[in-house]
Amino acid sequence: MRVDLFDFVLPPERIALRPARPRDAARMLVVRGDIAPFGDCTVRDLPAQLRRGDVLVFNDTRVIPAQLEGRRGDARIGATLHKRIDLRRWQAFIRNGKRLRVGDVVQFARDVAAIAEARHDDGSWTLAFVGDEPVEVLLERAGTMPLPPYIAGKRPTDEADRSDYQTMFAREEGAVAAPTAALHFTPDLLAALDEAGIGRETLTLHVGAGTFLPVKVEDTAEHRMHSEWGRIEPDVAARLNAARQAGGRVIAVGTTSLRVLESATGDDGIIQPFSGDTDIFITPGYRFRAIDGLMTNFHLPRSTLFMLVSALMGMERMQAAYAHAIAEHYRFYSYGDGSLLLP
């Protein structure tokens, strides 16, 4: 499909630079079917928009401070870690990478250094961190939270982002981007969901920085997704299958949860335990097998995530929903408002 079909004009002032406070005060656009009117709600209204027996599926990945600034000699080098290779090595996108050669040592802040081991076809590098300390400890000393470029380009990262860019479900360290739909949840909202008989489960997908890369090709068939590591435990898969068999709906909270669920599910619609990499790329024409709905934020024009929601709800429906959101002053992207998509 032509990538320009997924384009739209977004006024810059619609991009949120800070989250709503409290988190569940964010607005939420409800999109149902292909003819129902749009619903202008808040995230606090979520329990009333779902049914008893439905299950929300959250991503429990934890964002690490994966943004690093350093030097190789006189050259300034920026690194964004995006995928763990092993205990000491990470694949990273490099700023000013033309100044790097295999074997160079990049000295980051506070006595943290890494060796540039290999350059990949996509321009990223393998960095091997020096020493015996866990890389996560080194990042706590030298790294900053890897805010998306549409936020980091407007203001500097600060201490508030350490908590703002982390969901209340964050447990498994390894993401370099937040599963942002879950940023809206609070203990009070979870209590209201419990009272409404709406279940919840967690899985893991370590979100990589590739999620922010622009689609540079003209046809979706030519785009290559970066792989990300995910896991669904056997007991979680069993409970989700049981919920669907009982008539409940599986609602993914975030496109990351959706992508793992769809990667783990065959044509029979049975969700299987999963552990491994996924590079699933969902565009219109895809037949969803695992999920019955999606809660997500508003995405970039021409992005793989806007393609995904268009696959779920239809291209014309999502173009109309986004036009409505822009006209009604919804806040976009990672720190922005949410949407609930129910085909």
Results as ranks from 00 to 15, higher is better:
318 M>R: 11
8 F>N: 13
233 E>G: 13
65 P>K: 07
138 L>Y: 01
168 M>I: 15
286 Y>C: 00
209 A>R: 12
41 C>M: 14
308 L>S: 10
189 L>F: 13
167 T>Y: 01
278 T>A: 05
302 R>G: 02
251 I>F: 04
248 G>N: 09
326 I>F: 08
13 E>A: 13
97 G>Q: 04
135 V>R: 12
162 R>I: 08
299 H>K: 04
319 Q>I: 10
153 G>W: 07
68 L>H: 01
257 S>T: 01
325 A>P: 12
123 G>P: 10
149 P>L: 14
162 R>E: 08
75 A>S: 06
104 D>I: 03
127 L>P: 09
69 E>K: 01
59 N>F: 11
263 S>W: 11
101 R>W: 12
205 L>A: 01
240 L>W: 13
250 V>M: 06
278 T>Q: 05
152 A>T: 11
198 I>A: 06
273 P>N: 05
304 T>N: 02
109 A>H: 02
262 E>S: 03
27 R>N: 02
14 R>H: 11
157 T>E: 14
153 G>Q: 10
266 G>C: 04
168 M>T: 06
170 A>D: 01
178 A>D: 06
136 E>C: 08
18 R>M: 00
87 L>N: 09
74 D>C: 00
261 L>W: 08
98 K>T: 07
53 G>E: 11
33 G>A: 02
3 V>N: 05
323 A>Y: 09
163 S>Y: 03
329 H>K: 15
183 L>S: 08
167 T>K: 07
113 A>M: 00
48 A>K: 14
14 R>C: 11
106 V>R: 05
127 L>D: 06
259 R>K: 14
272 Q>M: 13
85 I>S: 09
306 F>A: 03
129 F>T: 04
94 I>K: 07
8 F>A: 07
330 Y>F: 13
289 R>L: 04
206 H>N: 14
225 M>N: 13
165 Y>M: 12
46 L>T: 12
23 R>V: 12
305 L>Q: 12
338 G>P: 09
60 D>F: 01
40 D>I: 08
182 A>P: 10
237 A>I: 09
15 I>G: 07
93 F>N: 02
